[in-house]
């Protein structure tokens, strides 16, 4: 998408007046659509649509050996795939840098034990643990990818169920795990503290959240803030621009304020989702 100068000025003035092109104020989000449990073969899944950004996340579980330096912890890995459906730019290896950036930010946001407790994924100290593979598929790109991905990941993890292990037989180096026969004997993951990301974009002298594609073009610099409760789990600057330290402080404040609000609303929605509703995408 490329904009001419007049269009950019129009967006800039809108932001200044606190009345953006689509009628939102500076702290407003576009409508979010969320569905969970839509992929049959996954342990948990979610699809999130934020205006024109569309993300599908599926969680797969595997049994693995813990890292030798952290024998009490399970593993959590993120894989991002930018489908060429989203934009022709992603064709071939085009989406690789963006995918790597997304996976890096997610990994660093989920690293602290305060945000996500990996110790619960340990089955047998130093020998067996659960490995959660979070596969993120970007179906459509309409701006503000980071926020959409973080919310979708959170929803997919919330939706995931870990099968219960009834007993472990150890015979020397041989370990046998007995998984419960009933499909309903599952444990939910605790995602109350899982981070949500807020992209704060500087346009003109003001900072806005949830930029659309056009607004991203006008921005001089953006900061992605990952908020867990009221704490920051990751802050990183993206894009080519630079920011004044004072602007950085303002963005952090705005990001925290919006992040807390977004997280609260999102958790409420997650708890209100009815199971087995047969409507929507992939159904």
């Amino acid at each position: 998408m490329s904009l001419c100068d007049a269009e950019k000025t129009f967006i800039l003035h809108g932001v200044k007046e606190n009345f953006r092109v689509d009628g939102r104020d500076r702290e407003g989000y576009r409508p979010i659509e969320l569905e969970t449990n839509i992929v049959q073969h996954a342990f948990g899944s979610a699809r999130l649509r934020l205006a024109n950004t569309d993300v599908l996340v599926a969680v797969k579980l595997e049994i693995d050996v813990p890292f030798p330096e952290r024998p009490f912890e399970g593993k959590l890995e993120f894989f991002v795939d930018c489908s060429a459906n989203a934009t022709p730019d992603f064709e071939g290896r085009g989406g690789e840098t963006l995918a790597a950036e997304l996976a890096n930010i997610l990994t660093s946001a989920y690293r602290s034990p305060q945000t996500f407790n990996l110790k619960k994924l340990c089955i047998l100290k130093g020998r067996k643990c659960w490995k959660i593979c979070v596969d993120i598929l970007i179906l459509e790109c309409g701006g503000n990818l980071f926020d959409a991905v973080s919310l979708a990941v959170k929803a997919a993890l919330h939706n995931s169920q870990i099968p219960l292990i009834k007993s472990i037989n150890i015979d020397g180096d041989n370990i046998e795990l007995n998984v419960s026969d009933s499909v309903f004997d599952c444990e939910k993951l605790d995602v109350a503290n899982a981070p949500v990301m807020v992209t704060v974009c500087k346009i003109g002298d003001q900072c806005i959240v949830d930029p659309s594609l056009a607004e991203e073009q006008c921005s001089v610099g953006s900061v992605v803030v990952a908020i867990s409760q009221e704490y920051f789990s990751t802050v990183t600057s993206i894009g080519k621009g630079s920011l004044h330290p004072r602007t950085m402080c303002n963005s952090l404040e705005l990001g925290q304020k919006v992040g807390i609000r977004l997280n609260k609303a999102f958790m409420e929605t997650l708890h209100n989702i009815q199971p087995d509703e047969d409507v929507g995408f992939l159904k």
Partner: peptide, 28 residues
């Protein structure tokens, strides 16, 4: 990372778990 004459932060990266006040004091 900072461009000192321009007073601009050209890169900022934080990972872990910290409050706003703590982050501000670290930034300063």
């Amino acid at each position: 990372s900072k461009l000192p004459m321009q007073q601009q932060l050209c890169q900022f990266h934080q990972t872990g778990y910290m409050s706003l006040d703590q982050l501000k004091s670290a930034l300063e």
